[in-house]
Design a protein around this nucleic acid. Structure first.
Lengths: 215, 215
DNA sequence: GAATTAATTGAACGTTCGTTTTATTATTGC
DNA sequence: GCAATAATAAAACGAACGTTCAATTAATTC
């Protein structure tokens, strides 16, 4: 046999991407074989090479598009406000929503970096650094404005991102907590962690509280 | 050739363990071949099977001993005090010190769980859960005593552990920050995150501050 | 110093891997 | 409906994989 009835390049490629994200997230990139992936799509292994020249090209494509999506999502969600607290809240909300919505892809992007060539690793890390820099800027602005109490901007940014991204490790949709509840709790924890004097969306308690949260 | 002069089973096994931790951390379990590991040790691949019956047995041994070490370290560091703040501080300090000291082993234990059989995965997760439960207990005690402000004990415990363990991703000994500095900063962030009314080791500011950090 | 045991080599086994090549069939454009 | 093109199957490639086995030599025991 050769071309099958109803076969369509676009649909096959989309099916390959989706199956690849799921399989790599579950088994790991090295452990997933091209034959396994092909079987999941309902196709022979050779057919995959019409869409991705090598296995690593497939991985890189998934990762690059994930990072592009993350940066784009933040570009849309980023508020016009100068207020650091609102910006931090928007960052947290966008980060959690995006990562919960794409748990598998996030897993792949975080866990399989070592399977990329040096050049491609650099490309992905560049995007990641750009995304993290956005958070550092917010933290620094907040610290300079006196609304955040931050010992070390870089370290705090890393701690926050690790904490937030960690959601995908234990969160399962439909279990005890809803996405909204999780987001609310993480927002509270974030605001306390950076020593914000008020919580986002709450009335300002007129000043006196600030010093109390200073370590 | 056969047995080499000066060969010693104990030394070889120790060398295999050390090389395996480093190689798996760098390349991943699936990507590391037994021949590669043997070469690193300076031995033929067949010699490895004198010490570990299969590749997965090797991985499991590394992980189990890592988790046992973590639980044991906490058993030693755990303070006799009932004071939740001191206990939390001890937990954070022990966690960070242990994980920075064994970055590679931690990497392996966190990233290669999916390469274990179901039965062995269960064993490792049981130990991990026991360790995490210690933190949840501290947080609950603190919340009940009114010295911590915690929305959700389980969620907060996960967030804290993700945050702290994340240190191994970016921390490199000898760079900008010392272990002591990192620990101090993480301790501050932790105490703020849980809404502790005072910081560990600082004089108590006589009460009035507590409400200020409530979200 | 002979017998036993410990430690390792070297070669081989069957399997699976990513990938390439060639042939074949479905779809599309004229 | 015929030519061109798109999408796949089927088979094969050499390389690498985890693992086993028999042979061999070093160290230990008596």
């Amino acid at each position: 046999m050769a071309r099958t009835t109803g076969s369509d390049g676009e649909k096959t490629e989309a099916a390959v991407r989706e199956a690849a994200v799921n399989l790599i997230a579950r088994l790991g990139y090295e452990a997933m074989s091209m034959r396994q992936l092909a079987a999941e799509v309902g196709v022979q292994a050779a057919a995959l090479y019409r869409y991705f020249p090598t296995k690593q090209d497939l991985l890189f494509t998934l990762m690059r598009e994930h990072m592009e999506g993350l940066l784009q999502a933040w570009g849309v969600a980023r508020p016009a406000t100068a207020d650091p607290e609102s910006r931090l809240a928007a960052y947290v909300e966008n980060h959690i929503a995006f990562h919960i919505g794409r748990r598998h892809a996030t897993h792949v992007s975080n866990m399989e970096l070592r399977s990329l060539s040096h050049e491609r690793l650099t490309q992905i890390l560049k995007m990641r650094t750009a995304y993290e820099k956005e958070l550092r800027t917010i933290l620094r602005d907040g610290a300079e404005a006196g609304v955040f109490q931050v010992d070390d901007t870089g370290l705090t940014a890393m701690a926050l991102i690790q904490m937030m991204t960690g959601v995908i490790v234990w969160f399962r949709p439909g279990e005890r907590l809803s996405i909204a509840e999780v987001t609310t709790t993480y927002l509270s924890m974030t605001m306390r962690l950076v020593g914000a004097t008020i919580s986002h969306g709450t009335a300002r308690p007129s000043g006196r509280a600030r010093d109390a949260v200073v370590l």
